[in-house]
């Protein structure tokens, strides 16, 4: 299949991360995310980032698989940093309580060491959380993911909807591609030659046929599922669910440790969510 359609696809690879159960990965993902999101201590965040890089290597994810995603993420975090500076250039000063000007700029846009630290910390925060998300998505079979959602008490119908979305994502992507080409052959302009308003309007000419052909598909799927007893009882079991093994407990233990460690640094050492080197 075309490389473009493989944005979110799960591959069966033999790696220590792939061999963990979906439930384990979900729990670890949540623990690590909370750990990073809570702390504004750049030392802690850098440590977790290093850990994320290690896990990425362990999971044998190739850079080519995530190139596109990394690009989007970088664009997002950089824009985010710039915009938050423009709207609140004194945020760092407010938080750390001191004001050390590094570059004197007109108006309120002085660049301060405090603001630099705050922005960098925030940037690293995002860049250390996102690898965990990518690893989770790429190493977890969607059905197993659904089964783990179900095990943490999400209703199985919702969990299955998530799995189905991932299952049919490539199909819908392919449909989109075909429709868009056929409409371009009729003269639809999607490139920058058209104005933004026209591009949005033209986008509709692809979306409408896509919705109708997807509705056909949905009818077939839901009939097929009804006919095989989906939804007959309040619970269901999962073919892909795995028993927790020792490596699962180890992984959860490590993640919990990291969570506790980062929380402890905030509570006992920094006595706040922020690490303040300016006092």
């Amino acid at each position: 299949m075309n490389a473009k359609t493989k944005l979110f696809s799960y591959d069966i690879v033999d790696s220590p991360i792939h061999s963990l159960s979906g439930l384990t990965k979900l729990i670890c993902f949540l623990l690590l995310t909370f750990a990073v999101m809570y702390s504004y201590d750049i030392r802690v965040i850098l440590a977790v980032m290093l850990f994320a890089a290690l896990i990425m290597k362990l999971s044998k994810i190739k850079f080519s698989q995530i190139k596109l995603m990394v690009l989007y993420v970088l664009i997002f975090v950089l824009t985010n940093a710039v915009i938050s500076f423009l709207f609140a250039p004194e945020m760092g000063v407010e938080i750390y309580g001191t004001r050390t000007v590094v570059i004197d700029l007109p108006g309120k846009f002085d660049i301060t060491a405090e603001q630099l630290l705050y922005s960098t910390t925030k940037l690293f925060k995002y860049t250390s959380v996102i690898p965990f998300g990518i690893i989770f998505l790429l190493t977890t079979n969607p059905s197993e993911f659904a089964s783990s959602l179900n095990r943490i008490r999400v209703h199985y119908k919702i969990a299955y909807a998530v799995a189905l979305t991932l299952r049919y994502f490539p199909d819908v992507q392919r449909d989109y591609h075909d429709i868009s080409q056929a409409q371009q052959a009729r003269g639809l302009e999607l490139s920058r030659k058209a104005s933004l308003f026209n591009r949005i309007k033209n986008g509709l000419l692809i979306i409408i046929p896509l919705i109708f052909s997807s509705l056909d598909r949905i009818e077939t799927i839901s009939n097929a599922m009804d006919l095989r007893g989906f939804g007959k009882s309040n619970t269901r079991t999962w073919y892909t669910s795995r028993k927790m093994k020792s490596n699962d407990y180890v992984a959860i233990f490590i993640s919990a440790l990291i969570f506790i460690a980062t929380a402890s640094v905030s509570i006992f050492i920094n006595k706040s969510r922020f690490y303040n080197p300016f006092i």
Binding site: Y10, N141, F230, T237, W238
Partner: peptide, 15 residues
């Protein structure tokens, strides 16, 4: 409906 043949065969057993 499922991602692998085995899982698809198991679908009604799961339910």
């Amino acid at each position: 409906v499922s991602l692998t043949a085995g899982e698809d065969i198991a679908f009604s057993l799961e339910n």
